[in-house]
């Protein structure tokens, strides 16, 4: 009796505070979930959603043009103002550029990601990965400024074109320049998800396609592309939303007729201090992204994120 009791007390030590806590947590899954999730959830609700809601409410107010104070009377005037040709043109330009950059990046990223995922040796794959991620180590601003040097009159690009006999080019401060810079800056965000999607495709599927008589082109079209599509769509969420929300590249690289939604929001905040109109305008990219994300979900993009 005594011996067993001693043995028991040795093997089952009296539960300490922390042990009791972990036992309680193990038994009550809901408590565990609450404790784990409440800090990030509080952050999400208070910082993220609350600020969005405050912004949305502001969109229905106006500003006293003289004193710059907010006038708390409800109006739809800010939203009506968005539907005038000036702002519709700017919204059209922003969305058009985001779409163009997304397509460009998808076309550039696919062969690159394919080579990385299915052709390269592990060693060269590592090198390629580093090469893709390397630009992300440098500041966004430094890279945009580098492009100013490349594209401006008498810059590197013009010098190169003159050397190979094509004559000087001067595309600095144009929408073409913006397209080049955006496509460059967001390319890594397309390559990585496409690579992940391509890497997941089992070799056996490609072999089966070959066994069934499909040539390379047919395999690409009927097997690889459909299976990689969710990855491309996932990447497009990044390239599209990042371009849609940008205002620094238009400010630095763009010329006349280069305003983005972000630039108009910025000038209404900074120069005019017309917060309500800026808030109303900020709703536009939110709506566009909601539509885009719903479409992306239909295409299965979230399974490969």
């Amino acid at each position: 009796m005594t011996a067993t009791a001693t043995r028991e007390s040795r093997t089952v030590p009296t539960p300490t505070g922390s042990a009791r806590l972990s036992a309680a947590l193990w038994r009550r899954a809901w408590l565990r979930a609450t404790l784990t999730l409440s800090p990030p959830l509080a952050w999400f609700l208070v910082i993220y959603l609350a600020s969005l809601v405050v912004m949305l409410i502001t969109a229905f107010w106006t500003v006293n043009p003289f004193t710059n104070n907010l006038v708390h009377s409800w109006t739809l005037a800010n939203f009506q103002q968005i539907f005038t040709s000036t702002y519709l043109t700017i919204i059209g330009r922003t969305v058009g550029m985001a779409a163009l950059v997304t397509v460009t990046d998808a076309v550039l990223a696919f062969p690159f990601a394919y080579f990385m995922a299915r052709v390269a040796t592990p060693r060269s794959r590592q090198l390629l990965f580093t090469a893709v991620l390397l630009p992300l180590w440098a500041s966004y601003l430094a890279r945009v400024y580098a492009w100013i040097v490349i594209l401006q009159k008498g810059g590197t690009l013009s010098w190169f074109f003159t050397k190979i006999g094509l004559g000087a080019v001067n595309i600095g401060y144009t929408n073409t320049a913006m397209w080049l810079v955006f496509s460059y800056i967001w390319l890594p965000f397309m390559i990585i998800p496409v690579y992940a999607a391509l890497e997941r495709i089992p070799d056996s599927l490609l072999e089966a396609s070959g066994d069934l008589g499909a040539r390379n082109w047919r395999t690409l079209r009927s097997v690889l592309l459909p299976l990689a599509l969710p990855g491309v769509v996932a990447g497009s969420i990044f390239t599209f939303s990042l371009t849609l929300g940008d205002f620094i590249t238009p400010l630095l690289i763009g010329g006349a007729n280069s305003n983005f939604i972000g630039n108009v929001i910025y000038s209404n905040l900074g120069t005019a201090n017309n917060l309500p109109f800026a808030a109303a305008l900020a709703v536009v990219p939110i709506v566009i992204m909601i539509v885009y994300l719903l479409g992306a979900r239909l295409l299965g993009a979230f399974e490969s994120l």
Partner: peptide, 9 residues
């Protein structure tokens, strides 16, 4: 400010 947005495009 509104006019300036129209002008710069």
């Amino acid at each position: 400010v509104t006019a300036w947005t129209q002008i710069t495009g």
